[in-house]
Computed example of a mutant assay.
Amino acid sequence: MLNRRSFLGGVSAAALAVPALGSLPAHAALRRAAPTLPLTIVNSTGNFDNASISVYVVGTNLDTGEQSRVTPDGQLVPVSPSDNGSDGFADYSIPLQGSGDTQLTLPSMSGRIYFALGDKLKFKVVTDGEGKPALQYPAGWVSSDPNYRVLHDTVEFTFKADGMYCNTTMVDMFSVPLAINLQGSQDQTTGTVPAGGRDRILAGVTENAGFEQLRQEDLRVIAPGHGLDLGAFAGDYYDSYIDEVWSKYQSTQLRIGLDDGRTFTGQVSGDNFTFDGGVQAIARPSTRDVLFCDGALAAPNDGVTGPVAAILGAAFNRSTLLDAAEQPGTDPAAFYKNQVTNHYSKVMHANTEDGKAYGFAFDDVANFASYIQDNAPTSIKVTLTPW
């Protein structure tokens, strides 16, 4: 399965190793060659009319590597500093139709579909270190960001010759409930938050000790990693749990199994978790490493250390390492039981219809992410669901 960290490349964080996609039957290969995909936007918020909502499709041209945006007529166009207006920002908004559903065309690319409610998002085209145009994305959780006061959220996708790969994401923040329906060889839907779920999420996260400052008024609730960087979440939150894990596995072996049948056995020695099978030693992580699934838990795209680090990162976030010496856990009833856990992610999963969410970067471990894919896609629909 392609996951959000690998298929977004420069738009997202570091890449994570994933199994290769299997071969497709001949009829699927024919269908997957289509360069465009019908995209339907459905406004079911009940709070905002179509005229109050803007759509933005931005990302990377997979053929040229250029950072690009999609025009209202479905063309993939490279971004340019000349796109910045007199206010210094580029208006890449695509308006919804006056009423009913909006029909758009999605070209082959990798990126994000943003939705802004009540106001427009402010993107800015800058020049990167190689002198190429680059797009500054919204960091709405940062008070100094020009998009801080704008209600907005996003879905992530890669659409290319071999299929469509997409997810709803709460890895950075949650603000606007979004659901994806993907049609093709299957009819799949994920990310649906039931009516009233937005309020339950914003309230539920902040009911947990230490998570109180993650809500930014009625705008959004932010991931604890970003809260940590903003001084709104304790930098040592996971430290006691990490210490217990390190103590347990000094005398106990941890067994990690991959989907392809490979297994790796590890044990703590000093400051490192060492595994057999050619896995690089994994250093004792910090709280920030756990929340971002980065640093000591970064997953190189090597097919060995990467999957092991991802599973270990997921087990820390779900707080299952003290309860089970075999990972990954596959029973969601056993997740988030420790007092020290990722309550943000727990609340996200509790408020989706299928129980799936992208509450942290490795939430796709054991297939608990709000992620779907189809190797012969015929259409995609994104619904802004009722609040």
Rank of each mutant, 00 (worst) to 15 (best):
G270R: 11
G355R: 01
Y238M: 07
D172I: 09
D218K: 14
Q339W: 04
L96Q: 14
C166K: 03
G261S: 14
N317M: 07
K132W: 07
T168L: 00
K337G: 00
A334F: 01
A17N: 09
Y344N: 00
L178T: 05
L214H: 06
T341R: 05
S86N: 11
G140N: 11
L135H: 10
P138F: 01
G278E: 12
D187G: 01
N84P: 05
V245K: 08
Q97F: 02
A15T: 13
V205F: 04
K120H: 13
E353H: 00
M173F: 12
T206N: 08
T154H: 09
Y238A: 01
P38A: 00
A361T: 09
A13S: 14
V193F: 03
N342A: 00
D354P: 01
F292E: 13
G235C: 03
N84G: 11
R220H: 08
L182F: 03
Y241G: 05
V55Q: 07
G140M: 08
S110Q: 15
M1F: 04
A283V: 14
V193D: 03
S251N: 13
P194H: 06
I41G: 05
I311T: 14
G295S: 14
E326R: 13
D243S: 11
G270H: 12
T158K: 10
T320N: 04
E66L: 11
L96V: 05
K160S: 08
G98S: 13
F89A: 04
W387N: 13
P146N: 08
R220F: 11
A179V: 00
R5I: 00
D374E: 07
A309S: 15
D101R: 14
A29Q: 15
P285A: 08
S6A: 10
F123S: 10
D289T: 12
N351S: 07
A90P: 06
P328L: 02
V279H: 12
T60H: 10
L37Q: 07
S319R: 06
L178K: 13
Y241Q: 08
A283E: 15
L104W: 11
P72M: 06
S269Y: 11
L106Q: 11
G210W: 06
L228Y: 09
A314E: 03
D229E: 13
S175Y: 03
G10R: 15
A283S: 15
A14H: 14
R200D: 08
S80L: 07
I380V: 15
D243G: 03
L182S: 07
L121S: 05
Y371C: 02
R149Y: 04
S345G: 13
V77R: 04
S108V: 03
S370K: 02
S240D: 15
G306F: 08
N47D: 12
W141Q: 15
A309H: 06
Q75V: 10
